[in-house]
Write a protein that binds this DNA or RNA. Structure first.
Lengths: 202, 202
DNA sequence: CAATTATGAATGAACAAGCATTCATTGCAA
DNA sequence: TTGCAATGAATGCTTGTTCATTCATAATTG
């Protein structure tokens, strides 16, 4: 939807607290009243925008998992990779996530949408990691611990990509996560060559 | 300062976009005009609030480093621990960080404060990790990679603590980070017993 | 086939509510 | 009396929302 895309751009460009009805409709090239016509209220537009981004994320990892094939190793690598996918990890989308996370403590609506996304993803994530631990005989590992740490690392990378995109590229961020995997699951992921790629990708 | 504390509580309770001058002054138990008297403008109050939290964080890790003694192993453990310290990792403070991170893409003022905090911290963090790599003869490790990953994991944990404080305690979050360290620096950090503590700390 | 009507999306001026900011006034301590 | 921190009513501006009106297209009619 044209208006949701305009909202995403406005949040990225003006911040959530300076995202007004008139700015969004101007961004969309439409008139003032158009948002209330289609979304009833501003609150609703914002909730729908968050839902849109969350749904896009869900689709991305579902598809990635399907494309990865039957091997658990590939499935886990695919789940990590999707976090740094061009669409999902777009600067504007990152800004949207952080904008809503910042408000989520005060707004149950936002928090619930975020928590639901998290639950769905983590359930699947946990299952893949549990399977890899079993298949690989990594008896010393705890699935909950690994999945909590790995997904936290991914989210922290998003913050770095949001705040200092100059210092970090999506590729480098992914490489750092893969490096973590290579230490946790040494039999399944190659230890990358020393040094992180410092070429600055757009 | 009384007004900055009130601002922190308001951001945590109402969100940044519903944090108004009247709400903050009411929260502080003072009158309408008081903020402009002491801080000139709302923008300035918010910037000072962010600076306050950033400064508090800087003091915390500086002190932690001083208290840790001369051993590099202890220094790194102290830097990880401080992220989950009761004061620094307080729910309201987390809400403040995420609120400003969410706006930072649109507001250079906020972004600069965040980036400055990041630079100072990461320089020190990197130095400690570099030293441990040298001392321990971990030739396969790249300091930049390890420090990027570890600090990202810490920030991701903050998000989990903000969104789902029920699922995760500060202690558990720290344990997950320490588990990462035990895989990266096996000679220096004990591998914790399997399973993460799931007791739900307040 | 042309003329007319019906339909629903889009408009933008108007409105009340809430906002940040100002400043003449107050209260209090020195 | 003096000096200064604090007040809170008043101000002008911006916000979200409404709704009578416009516009473009589809359906109906003679």
């Amino acid at each position: 939807m044209q208006l949701i895309q305009a909202t995403i751009r406005s949040i990225a460009g003006n911040g959530l607290s300076d995202t007004t009805m008139s700015r969004v409709s101007k961004e969309a090239g439409l008139s003032q009243g158009i948002i209330n016509l289609h979304f009833q209220s501003k609150d609703n537009l914002l909730a729908e925008t968050l839902k849109f981004v969350a749904e896009e994320y869900r689709c991305a990892w579902t598809q990635a998992l399907a494309d990865a094939g039957p091997e658990t190793v590939d499935q886990l690598a695919a789940l990590v990779a999707v976090d740094f996918d061009k669409t999902v990890c777009h600067p504007d989308k990152l800004a949207v996530w952080f904008a809503f996370w910042g408000e989520s403590k005060a707004r149950p609506t936002y928090r619930n949408i975020c928590a639901a996304r998290d639950r769905a993803y983590r359930t699947r994530f946990n299952a893949v990691i549990t399977k890899l631990i079993e298949e690989g005989g990594y008896t010393a590992l705890d699935a909950e611990n690994v999945s909590t740490g790995l997904s936290a690392m991914g989210e922290g990378m998003w913050l770095d990509l949001l705040i200092s995109p100059r210092r970090l590229s999506r590729e480098t961020a992914k490489a750092v996560c893969m490096n973590y995997l290579s230490y946790i699951f040494p039999k399944h992921y190659p230890r990358p060559k020393v040094g992180i790629d410092r070429t600055n990708a757009a």
